[in-house]
Design a protein around this nucleic acid. Structure first.
Lengths: 182, 182
DNA sequence: TAATATGTATAGTATAAATTGAACAATTTG
DNA sequence: CAAATTGTTCAATTTATACTATACATATTA
């Protein structure tokens, strides 16, 4: 039978592993997810070396992983006076993390398609209106229809992203059904 | 100066590439994304061999990619009478694809955490209430607080997923601002 | 039932990604 | 200013993933 300390450590490890796995959904490696998980359960800001020993990875890997987490704002850097080392704390608000991730992806998706259509659409328009080849004309017209349909999709997702960014979404789905302030 | 046929092909390739890139966001390889892109712009159902030549990949790769697309319901299989080959058509409704992908991921995320907390929570509760070690007791209590906070997050995301599944979300963000039936 | 066609599974190869150790730059301390 | 500390970059390695060619199973036709 394990002692309490071991049980606590084991329980926390399970949670950290689960968090690491969920973060894979959001496009980071399990290792980076573990870094976040460790920080998530830490009551104190941690240094690179602290984390390095906890996750048993090289300093280089932790450094790279940390940059990734900083870029996505899942982790922030803090100063601890009297210590030369950088320290890091996890952004523990899952909802905040989720929303900012989501918004970023949605906008990225849209940009990719918009950039392509900006190039393609004028050419298709030209063929669809001016071509003397019936066949080509028809094909171009169909492609244009698809592009136009996709615009209405992006309109929708952008509205969702905007509602998420502004917080308007919480009018539709309230943040905390019963208790608590923001 | 290119002729119209080349311009059309080039325009479509650009769109297909863009679609393939966006699908990377949703966790498939660019190759699989290209398969979908090709199907997306095809007016006719296509066979494995049709696609194979269009995307210049091995039959095995197309077959694997197709399974992936079928599993996520981004592509459906159709029968074409008089032809032994299977044929495939793309689900062209981006919004539908997006929503079903999203719902799946959100539920998956929740399941991962719930499964871990089901194991961890009882142990933590025990320590948090019964332990004689003040230090451990406090740590367990803090971990439990984090877990409880995460539940409110999942409550929120599940509500969002449910609203997406039921279509209720369209009361908040209408599908087509001006025109068209479903 | 033999011959052909179609799609899938398997195993090997090629490609890409993650991880590390060591060198480096920047900063701080004595 | 030398020595030490910290974090990052880079090349090399390991590991994982995607892809292909081949063999296989299944179904279809004659």
């Amino acid at each position: 039978m394990k002692n309490e300390e071991e049980i606590l450590a084991h329980s926390r490890d399970m949670m950290i592993s689960a968090i690491a796995q969920t973060m894979v959904i959001y496009g980071v490696t399990p290792s980076v997810g573990r870094i976040y998980g460790v920080l998530y359960f830490s009551t104190e800001p941690m240094s690179l070396d602290d984390i390095k020993t906890q996750v048993a990875m090289s300093k280089a890997s932790v450094s790279n992983g940390m940059r990734e987490l900083l870029e996505t704002e899942m982790v922030i850097k803090v100063w601890k006076k009297g210590d030369r080392k950088d320290h890091y704390v996890a952004e523990k608000d899952f909802l905040k993390n989720f929303l900012s991730f989501f918004i970023k992806k949605i906008r990225h998706e849209r940009n990719l398609i918009i950039k392509a259509t900006e190039q393609a659409q004028p050419n298709l328009e030209k063929i669809a209106t001016n071509s003397e080849d019936k066949q080509l004309k028809e094909e171009a017209r169909k492609d244009l229809d698809l592009i136009k349909e996709s615009y209405s999709y992006f309109e929708w997702t952008m509205q969702l992203a905007n509602a998420m960014e502004s917080g308007e979404i919480f009018n539709f789905i309230p943040k905390n059904p019963e208790k608590k302030e923001e």
